[in-house]
Design a protein around this nucleic acid. Structure first.
Lengths: 208, 208, 208, 208
DNA sequence: CTATAATCGAGACGGTACGTCCGGTCTTAGT
DNA sequence: ACTAAGACCGGACGTACCGTCTCGATTATAG
């Protein structure tokens, strides 16, 4: 899901151009990669997309929301494939996330969005819905697979399972982001292996 | 270190006002807490500090550097106290960091600075020097204490020790930041305990 | 003549709504009176008239022409009635004109149209046809009546008669407009009497 | 007097550039002559003057005021020279006024300003002060000269003298403006002579 | 105790981007 | 062929900050 905004039930008047939507989001990603968050101006995006500023403002109320949607699509690509072991599944998903964070447009946008989110409750909510929650799904999925394989004990308590999912998610996402975007060090297969080891030895209830 | 800024060589004409330095940094923190990074304007800071824009620009070349210095001070407060066990030491330092991140000015500034850092190599370097490295010192210190207590094996290999320090640091810092600023959930003693357990059971070579 | 506008040839599909014409012109006068020429926007007029912008543009190519037609109707009301003396006839027609110029919509529109006319030859022509010439008719009529009454010598020379009509017309129209719209003073019966005297007699106290 | 705005007693900060004032007013007149009132945009004037928009807005709050000042200067040139007879003096001043109104920038601006003035009380006041009153001075001066020469009776009553000045002024100004800008006919020496005759003598052929 | 010089406040300067409003044109679906 | 609705491109608006500049006025040290 990354339909631009709601746009639910319309019928009257000239319909909004789907081509414009696409052009705008593409232009946004392109501009992000070139000039970064700070250098991104609505006017430039509109120009680049061959669209009037009004057309852009009709759809997105601010730079934040626009970049939000422009980046959201990218995050939907992440997937947990069952590779036969929890370790392999984690390493795979971490590698996917790292690959995502090495694209210049994602790099430029992600932290900036999070930073804006600390001040704008509405944006924070949208970030949660569009970026955070879908990724938590990955953790849930990975756990379920591991449980099916017998690598993890089944959940006894629903509430504590949820808390565990949260903590695992914040750890994986936060650590990879910090490594790449703050410390500025590369995420190599070796680093991924070390990090996964840190997580697994042993996760509570994990049986090597 | 949080000497105002450079303040370099000599003293011929009228000396720079130390009061101005203080007023500016205070005004910056104040404004950050109120209007956030995005709403922070140099002109406003100057006005709030009762200082001419010129005076501000003479000291800091940009918003980034200014906020950098305004926030840096706060991070120097973190300290590792030897509480008798590695677990206790980690929990203590995590709690300190969480307390820091709950101040609105830090909250507003930290991710924004990191985001700017992804595009500005020079800033990235300053961030490394002023924010990241001093915190890595905490990890080093904690490890040394644990080794002295016999909780951790002594380092066999210097290089792999460094890598381990990095990974631990990114994990702690990244996870706490993500929990608080992205997921937006509180960091309670219970959460800290769970997170510490995730780290310790067992860190390689750890003997409970 | 104030037929809506062109509305030229024939009738194939759905005929144009006469109600729309009326609604638009009324809305135009209403808006003129409220927000003046500068604040008059086509979109607002359309909205006020409960009509689509398209409908308006199908009939009038521009704000100028629209206001032209909206105001033209009002000017057709002026008439010369034979009151028995040239002085009375002049005073009457001046009073009529002044009454017209005290309506807010005429006030707002007239000078603005004339101003636009200084740059737009086509508009200037339309103004001449719709506003100026019909009023010159008043002068011609008044002269004819006075000649019939024996107050004025009959025309000897057609060309110089035309020049005289022009000069009288510009003097009456220009002076009243200037008094009301530029100097901003009221046109009272007393003022009208003085002005008529100026036209009909030498300057008071003047010794040729 | 057409000092840009008041600018009375300043002392602090960088003083306003007098060169900018001049450049802006020149650019305004230039642009008026080229694109007319309707086509005049603040941005274009600023660009043409080699000045930032802010610089312009700091001095003039709106297009109206700007054009006001740009045109006002021109009107100060008008002067009554004592040519020995009232007729000669009137003809001279009318010719001066007509010459002024044949400059494209004055032509474009004058009626537009008057039109705006019908809706904007503040502007109306400024117009009165800057344009109308100085010109009334011409009438007063001409009358005084004529009285000194014995062509006119001295004022018996101050109030009725003021009224007479007003009526003469509105007649001259209004008629010339209407002739040139509305009727669009040239003001030739012959026309001036006829018009002056109308003022000074009864209507030709009129029998009171 | 007077130069000299760097600072200070204030505020104007040329710019860039903002988000809004209008003008005119177009594309729908419905009359 | 018309209508209402409303999206479309383009361009000007007036505002907010940016970072630089020019002022006159302080406030130090050095001669």
């Amino acid at each position: 899901m990354a339909t631009p905004p709601p746009a639910p039930h319309r019928a009257k008047g000239r319909p909004r151009s789907a081509a414009a939507d696409r052009a705008i989001l593409d232009a946004t990603r392109e501009a992000l990669a070139e000039v970064g968050w700070g250098g991104l101006s609505i006017g430039q995006v509109a120009l680049r997309a061959g669209v009037a500023k009004t057309t852009l403002y009709r759809r997105w109320p601010s730079k934040n929301e626009l970049v939000m949607d422009a980046v959201a699509t990218q995050l939907e690509e992440l997937e947990v494939t069952d590779l036969g072991s929890l370790r392999a599944d984690i390493e795979d998903v971490v590698a996917q996330f790292a690959a995502l964070l090495s694209r210049p447009e994602t790099q430029a946008a992600l932290l900036a969005l999070f930073a804006e989110g600390t001040r704008d409750a509405q944006l924070r909510k949208r970030i949660r819905q569009t970026i955070v929650d879908p990724q938590k799904r990955l953790v849930r999925q990975g756990r379920a697979n591991a449980q099916a394989r017998g690598e993890l004990d089944p959940d006894c308590d629903e509430a504590s399972a949820a808390e565990e999912i949260d903590i695992i998610f914040d750890t994986i996402a936060g650590t990879v982001e910090h490594r790449m975007l703050v410390s500025g060090e590369p995420v190599t297969p070796d680093w991924i292996s070390r990090f996964t080891t840190l997580l697994l030895n042993p996760l509570p209830g994990f049986r090597a």
